[in-house]
């Protein structure tokens, strides 16, 4: 019992240390370490996709395969719920 409590406390302390460490050593807002990709999207996104919203351009054009996976996950979830609740129809 005492051992479990000690493990719990240690886990929480480790998590707290990680959170504090990330906050302290985080780079400044607006100055990421690797900005090559961001600069490419900002410079060429409008010209290549014709879209003002760079987020939409990344979501549906540059990373379109990721978005179709997202949409399929939602579709699969809806299908699973249709199957689960099928018996109580009628």
């Amino acid at each position: 019992m005492c051992k479990v409590k000690a493990i719990k406390a240690l886990t929480l302390l480790a998590l707290l240390a990680m959170l504090v460490g990330t906050t302290v050593y985080m780079h400044d807002f607006g100055s990421p370490e690797n900005a090559a990709m961001d600069d490419y999207f900002i410079q060429n996104g409008q010209a290549e996709t014709g879209s003002n919203n760079i987020v939409a351009a990344v979501l549906f054009d540059y990373r379109g395969l990721d978005t179709i996976g997202e949409a399929s996950v939602l579709f699969a979830a809806a299908c699973a719920i249709f199957l689960l609740f099928r018996r109580s129809e009628e």
Partner: peptide, 27 residues
Amino acid sequence: SGGVLPLMNIAVGIEVFAALSAIMILM
């Protein structure tokens, strides 16, 4: 403007609306 982006937005909008509504109705 935006090429296929608006069309894809419309398609995803239909899908998300229908999926969320169906989930809510069933549950």
